[in-house]
Design a binder for these strands. Structure first.
Length: 423
RNA sequence: GGAGGAGUGGCCGAGUGGUUGAAGGCGAUCGCCUCGAAAGCGAUUAUACCGGCAACGGUAUCGGGGGUUCGAAUCCUCCCUCCUCCGCCA
């Protein structure tokens, strides 16, 4: 959510920012008119209530003195009706203001490059050497199938398309990756591990920005007002919803493993094969709550923490800075980490690291105090994948593929897998 | 799932219709005292919104929503959470 004061005082810059990211800027005008109505009604109602409160006090005093207050009471009856009416109007207008606000995306940070779509993203750095192998690397889903570790047919029987059953060393590798990532972030990068619920309520999803706009992307329980999380970001960020954090608490750094569930509505026909785009996948997520002053430095270090996973696994990758038009709804600035897939001969997203500034904090009401007497301010929230586990497995199956069709484990993983090779 | 109990400020805790945004205590902050500290004394100590350049004024909030009433922390109602007992269960 954007700061309503910013929209009031500086609507033109807000509109420009929204156009920069390809969003509909007319919402700003809708907000402005609804907001003005709301403020007018609020002012009127508050004045009437002030009067009512004053007269109520007089009634109370008269009653104490055993005087007759019938006349005042009768008078207040009308006033009370009027208050009720106006209050209802005010409530409706307030709802309108809020629903407009909830559909407006974040404003891109000045450092986010201009551009319309992924084609305008900027590569900021590359890491790792892309090997020219003397055999043709099979795509991960083929090699995984022939090694007997990925079973898409069984998954289709159990659940449908976009699911996968991991078998044997595949299942073990998945588990090893999760443990490896969590250990790295907790032991070397200073994150506190949490294991949150993966079913959450609508308030939580509103807090991070999935609701109300992206409900169709979520799996919802039929009989309960609960959704499966599309990312642990939702659970973990909402850990501090409606809280005022103490000055010495920041920065807070969490990492969490969770399964993630996405309906992938509207992505039919896209990445249909393999582990790239599944309805259910595992992810280790990094989440930070920070002082606004440091949030961009914190984004750099969070990105570096995610990159470290790829470095330790020896997977070639590049870092891409998303242009304004490609930014997610809640993000002000995002770096995508893209890992090399040799079978396809291209880089694909494996992590997305974002600074949401106060956008989520305002929705989720997460504040901090700079000192014991200071006024609470919104924190900045950040998160990034550290990493998407399924895609990491896929990258390993391709990058570590041998001519004989076997897969050599990255060295750091061996103590987690207990084997050095899949064949 | 059934029965009963409870949810008040950072914390504890009073408060069953009218100067109660909320006693009292703890904690915290500032000041006095002190060489310094402790103790003691005094003051301050929620959040959001609206109006105002500001000083300041106003409104709302006692788990959440709705209702009764001139007036609700207090009464009614629905929901949520926690506790106890029963049932079920990993």
């Amino acid at each position: 959510m954007l700061d309503p004061k910013l929209l009031r005082n500086n609507p033109d810059s807000a509109k420009k920012a929204l156009r920069d990211r390809g969003a509909d800027a007319s919402a700003v005008d809708l907000f402005l008119s609804a907001d003005e109505k709301w403020r007018k009604l609020t002012f009127e109602v508050d004045e009437l209530k002030a009067e009512r409160n004053a007269i109520s006090d007089r009634i109370a005093e008269m009653k104490r003195k055993k005087e007759d207050a019938a006349e005042l009471i009768a008078e207040m009856k009308n006033s009370s009706e009027r208050i009720k009416e106006l209050d209802e109007q005010r409530r409706l207008e307030e709802e309108k203001v809020n629903s407009i606000l909830l559909f407006i995306p974040n404003v891109p940070h000045v450092s986010s490059p201009a551009g319309k779509n992924a084609g305008d993203n900027i590569e900021v750095r590359k890491w790792g050497k892309i090997e020219n192998k003397d055999f043709s690397v099979k795509p991960h889903f083929e090699i995984g199938r022939s090694l007997g570790i990925l079973d898409f047919d069984a998954a289709a029987k159990l659940a449908g398309a976009r699911f996968c059953v991991l078998r044997g060393m595949g299942a073990q590798l998945e588990r090893a990756l999760i443990n490896f990532m969590l250990d790295l972030h907790t032991k070397e990068h200073g994150y506190l591990e949490v294991f949150p619920p993966i079913l959450v309520n609508p308030d939580s999803l509103r807090g991070t920005g999935q609701l109300p706009k992206f409900e169709e992307d979520l799996f919802k329980c039929r009989d309960d007002d609960l959704f499966l999380v599309p990312t642990a970001e939702v659970s973990v960020t909402n850990l501090h919803r409606d809280e005022i954090l103490k000055p010495d608490q920041l920065p807070i750094k969490y990492c969490a493993y969770s399964p993630c569930f996405r309906r992938e509505a509207g992505s039919y026909g896209k990445d249909v094969r393999g582990l790239i785009r599944q309805h259910q996948f595992n992810k280790v997520e990094l989440v930070k709550f920070v002082n606004p002053e440091n949030s961009y430095a914190e984004l750099e270090s969070l990105t570096a923490d995610a990159e470290d996973v790829l470095k330790k696994l020896g997977l070639p990758y590049r870092v891409v800075e998303l242009c304004a038009g490609d930014l997610g709804f809640a993000s002000a600035k995002t770096y995508d980490l893209e890992v090399w897939f040799p079978a396809e001969g291209k880089y694909r997203e494996i992590s997305s690291c974002s600074n949401f500034e106060a956008f989520q904090a305002r929705r989720a009401n997460i504040k901090y105090k700079t000192g014991p007497t200071a006024k609470p301010e919104f924190v900045h929230t950040l998160n990034g994948s550290g990493l998407a586990v399924g895609r990491t497995m896929a990258a390993i199956l391709e990058n570590y593929q041998q001519a004989d069709g076997s897969i050599v484990m990255p060295e750091v993983l061996c103590k987690y897998t207990g084997f050095e090779q899949i064949n």
